[in-house]
Design a binder for these strands. Sequence first.
RNA 1: GGCGGCAUAGCCAAGUGGUAAGGCAGCGGCCUGCAAAGCCGUUAUUCGUCAGUUCGAAUCUGACUGCCGCCUCCA
Length: 508
Amino acid sequence: MNLRFHNTLSRKVEDLRPLEAGRLGIYVCGPTVYDAPHLGHARSAVVFDVFRRFFEALGYNVTLVRNITDIDDKIILKAQAAGTDYRTIAERYQNQYDAVMAALNVRAPHAAPRATAYIGTCQELVARMLRNGHAYRSGKSVYLAIHSCRDYGRLSGRSCDPLPDISRCREQPEKRHPGDFALWKGSKTGEPQWSSPWGPGRPGWHIECTAMSHALLNTPFDIHGGGRDLIFPHHENEIAQSIAAFGKPPAAMWLHHGMVTVGQAKMAKSKGNAPPLEALLQTYPPEAVRLFLLSRHYRRDLPYTESALQESTAQLNRLYALARRLQAAFGNLSPTPCRQSFLWQRFSRNLASDGNFAGGLSVLFETARDLNRALDATVANRYGALWRTTRSTAADWRYICRDILGVLHMTAEAHDPARHKIQAPVLSPAAIEGLVIRRQAARKNLDWGTADALRGVLEENGVRLQDKNHETFWQHGKQRGKITAGAQCDDGFETICQSNRHPSTKTV
RNA sequence: GGCGGCAUAGCCAAGUGGUAAGGCAGCGGCCUGCAAAGCCGUUAUUCGUCAGUUCGAAUCUGACUGCCGCCUCCA
């Protein structure tokens, strides 16, 4: 199967040919940790997490590197405003980022280097570029001369001249050309600094990525990824640096995902339109957020709306409902995928064709319907051919959901659709069971009015009931239990019923 | 102004030359005392508009309309 991806460099969908057979080196630009992570960061992480899982499932030896930029103007400003060290700020937001990505079931990359751990490598690169005549010292800083790098502007589709619109730039008399950019920034007083052959300072924004990707993956590596907003200047400048230092571009293929938008504008911290991810994850299941982030082709912008997340939550509940049925029917399914299966073929064809997540997802939903039908059809016959093929399809389905998409990794029992549907006042288990028992008594007496009213009281308090034969299962947040018909009430249930009385329960 | 992208049902969204996937919501039915879950059926003679190429176009070409991104903070 050919892996085909849209390469920003050529603007075409191309075959992905590993530079070294069986291996893939991937570098993704991670966050600058100066503020709380938002959905845009999550999209980047989740998209490349699924690519990584998919490539590994195909048998590639993948090395995924995602950096953390822990030194930059905004971190410094924030630290100064808070009267603290830049490290404190960077650590705080990196911890938040890591926690949120873990909640989203994003696998840790193989390396997550921080810029400040590679200052020495950055300096070596700067020295190299100076030696090669592509960089120049000016004032306390070192700049890269973009005119000296062949193909500058090719990635972003612009040329050196005229570049850029000077009216938009601050006056920077140290530069020979307005498009030149700092490799090493001479430090101002009060800023964090490192000593260097060019005086105290810190690395420019772009140099760290060249340093870390070269150190961890070597140049060139297979895939460089990131948000589309990084194409210019960041990735353009990375290419220039790599040419200046090594005479070759850093990566064979450039993958860029689209932006998460809010009300037709890009989601951005600077625009103040980004809901904090941590809050979002309190309202919606993390796996639903994952499904949402994978619901549209990765290259296109993804509009964020509440209703889209609600929809993804409904989808997730449906997938877990099937997972529950499968667990009941087959127990724990073999985690090993069947590469020959029709399902895997159809699913992987979608992912291999420029990461068509939405197409892959549709295959899984189709299969979910088929599995439900098959389970309906085979309840009476657990030994027929249909039962066996259903079991094997079920194993593949579960595998793809869990190991490739990174959803359905909890046991079906642990997933709680009610938790994210109803915001309920807390009832104690004893109180709930008292009401359930009372409702069962009413049902036994065919007193449907009372039974329905009690169901109403429970539902208003966020308790979900499910009747099955002689048992009633209840679920309230993370608590659950069952009551078998004929159970006795605890003392005091009357009081509970009284205290929970609600206008709509007056028929009780 | 320069460069790039997008327009498919009530909503979300695949499909890049062979006759419109999937999801959500809705509706009808089965099941259930009621409900939940599940299942079945149903929802675009049509893909922003106009013209062209072709036996054949949502898919290719041109024009037009609308929306968005980048142009040194950016995932």
